[in-house]
């Protein structure tokens, strides 16, 4: 690469990275060290780790994010697998991605309509004789809607991993006498694991800080860190504490990335 070429590529990329990745993160870290009176302090972190409320909220968030990721994974893997076998798979894939083009708020409102007392879901329950149920504002409905929203982000990386899988390996496994299940268990699944991990990364972190859904669908019965951040920035204007929670989320993201990144990858290649 010539020197001019290098700068030609690096400058826009570096600018982008600096302005939109490094600067915001640095600002959040910086803000997190200031209290309401704009004095430098570590009190925000001390508050966070000493108050039972924030720790409980963190546990809550991690637990719900875990459940959402788990259900998303359970649905997405088989879906991606089946999609990959289909004839018009590009079309099917497009249909899976299509809902992501719709704003999340619109989707949430659509679910409010479906789940309300006189909504479609309850009409159906009444029709089959189960009678109406309280569907909105339950933990189950929150997880259901969050899972629905996250599914495309899990399907895509798994689908791509399946696409990259060399069919010769599957054929070889079958030739050598492995059953369908054994092939899947020992060949297909391990080789598509990077896709699953990428999917987990794409789903888990955003799920930690979902806040619109906790109110609209969960009726604030589910409180996540996102709720606290929203409150600190919009109501109490305690940006320091809000940033502190933001930093905790960034650290959580780094941990998840570490756990789900394949460290042996370099050696294997």
């Amino acid at each position: 690469m010539t020197k001019r070429n290098f700068w030609g590529y690096f400058v826009p990329y570096g600018l982008w990275l600096g302005l939109f990745v490094i600067a915001p993160v640095a600002l959040i870290v910086y803000q997190s060290f200031f209290n309401l009176d704009h004095q430098f302090t570590f009190a925000n972190y001390a508050d966070y780790f000493q108050s039972g409320v924030y720790l409980k909220m963190t546990l809550n968030s991690v637990w719900y994010a875990f459940l959402i990721t788990l259900f998303t994974g359970l649905i997405s893997y088989p879906t991606a697998y089946v999609l990959h076998q289909l004839k018009h798979r590009q079309l099917w894939l497009l249909l899976v991605i299509l809902p992501t083009w719709i704003n999340i708020l619109l989707k949430a409102y659509a679910f409010i309509g479906l789940f309300s007392q006189d909504g479609l879901a309850n009409t159906f329950l009444r029709f089959i004789g189960v009678g109406p149920h309280q569907l909105l504002f339950t933990n189950a409905s929150f997880i259901f809607v969050a899972t629905y929203i996250q599914i495309p982000f899990m399907i895509l990386p798994i689908y791509n991993a399946l696409d990259d899988l060399n069919p010769a390996l599957v054929n070889a496994s079958r030739d050598l006498g492995a059953t369908h299940w054994q092939t899947f268990r020992h060949v297909i699944f391990p080789l598509t694991l990077p896709g699953v991990k990428a999917g987990i990364q794409a789903v888990f972190i955003p799920s930690l800080s979902l806040f619109m859904l906790t109110r609209l669908i969960g009726g604030n019965k589910v409180i996540t860190l996102g709720t606290a951040i929203e409150e600190h920035f919009l109501t109490t204007m305690n940006w320091g504490m809000g940033s502190t929670i933001g930093v905790v989320l960034i650290v959580a993201m780094i941990i998840v990335m570490q756990l789900t990144t394949d460290h042996t990858k370099g050696a294997a290649k």
Partner: peptide, 19 residues
Amino acid sequence: APRVVQTYNDRYLEFKMHH
């Protein structure tokens, strides 16, 4: 005062978490 507003909101957040 901002600190009192903060207390109101902290208490309220606790209520929301418990309910």
